[in-house]
Design a protein around this nucleic acid. Structure first.
Lengths: 202, 202
DNA sequence: ATTATATATGACACAGTGTCACTTGTCAAT
DNA sequence: ATTGACAAGTGACACTGTGTCATATATAAT
């Protein structure tokens, strides 16, 4: 979390820093993003940066949290609306993230983030770990709501199903944010979901 | 490709350099691997490194090529053996990569590589792009061999199926290399494959 | 006016990259 | 044995970057 010093800053200055950070984080993957570029662009002293943020990650996390701030709330709403149906929840999440990611000022940043999620990252869809924890907690609840429609005999198997859905949804979000025609991209996503539902065998 | 200068080096010197490089590439993700560490460990001058390799990537590619050198050949053999059955080919690839990756001297490096493949990486399983091209070429052939068993009506749909299999296999390779019990890990992989085959719905 | 306290700053020490002018080694031809 | 030509080796240099710290400056609080 940024320091109070940062939050106490005049609005314009804060805005200038966040704008510069957005630009830099949209430019290259997180590891390559440089604080130097941010402070130069925002016209603050190098030392000031460290007065406001612990490091690059700190700032990045703050920006992501503010962008996807309502995500957890949204997720809970989705669960509610779809009565826990895990497949529809993933479709909803896809739609929601594409909607936010397609907004001009978010697009590059979102692409950068999704493209650079690692195979090993054990996160639902974004780098926001909190969302995962939320889902983890509601796992039993979700399991009981899905065990009658899905071919699963315990929570372990349910987790495998979630993993499959996560992997597929992620890849498709990357593709959708990348290519122009998002209607086409959505069709491909739904086709893949269909495969997951019914299987690829004839 | 490394220069001739490198290939002409006395065997011990070459070995020392490659050993140092392996160590560094196993330590951290490629982006963070430092040439400085490699040259210091291998006890060569910084300038020499650039006499041998274009840059970090050049050396990395060379090492990976030598580790998975027979991969393409293996892939073609698998295709042959399984008579083109794409699902079995993926299971074979999984087994083969786990086998190589479980060798002590490869383990850390393989983990590092698989864990750091990005969602957006359009590669089959490793960073070796050549393998992908190979598969791309045999796509029509593979399609014709799978169209009767899979629920696909054109090559585009076949590509979606391959994407699904790639995503799942990758994640499972990461898990298997990470955790001790590879028998358990393999069971989970096969379960996921079963879901892909028959669908997750009851 | 004085004293805390909060902010701001850039020089520093450190780590890293890629290049280049220069040195050293090798070996064949005279 | 000397020369010349080419191959191989080298570390200082100019970059770009990080995180820290002593010092300077502003803002309140008494």
């Amino acid at each position: 979390m940024p320091t109070n010093t940062f939050f106490n800053l005049p609005a314009e200055k804060k805005h200038k820093i966040l704008k510069a950070a957005n630009k830099e984080f949209a430019r290259v993957p997180l590891e390559q993003a440089s604080i130097k570029n941010i402070v130069e662009d925002a016209e603050i002293a190098r030392g000031s940066f460290y007065q406001y943020f612990e490091n690059k990650q700190d700032l990045f996390d703050y920006i992501m949290t503010s962008k996807t701030g309502d995500m957890e709330k949204n997720l809970m709403e989705m669960i509610e609306n779809e009565n826990g149906n895990i497949i529809n929840i993933f479709i909803n999440m896809y739609d929601h993230l594409i909607e936010v990611g397609k907004i001009r000022r978010n697009n590059k940043l979102f692409r950068q983030i999704f493209e650079n999620i690692k195979t090993s990252d054990n996160l639902m869809l974004t780098r926001k770990e909190e969302m995962n924890k939320k889902l983890e907690k509601t796992l039993q609840d979700l399991y009981s709501k899905n065990k009658d429609i899905l071919n699963i005999k315990d929570e372990e198997e349910f987790k495998l199903v979630i993993e499959i859905l996560t992997a597929i949804t992620r890849r498709r979000i990357v593709a959708s944010l990348k290519y122009k025609n998002s209607a086409e991209a959505r069709k491909d996503f739904l086709k893949e979901i269909e495969y997951i539902k019914r299987g690829i065998l004839k």
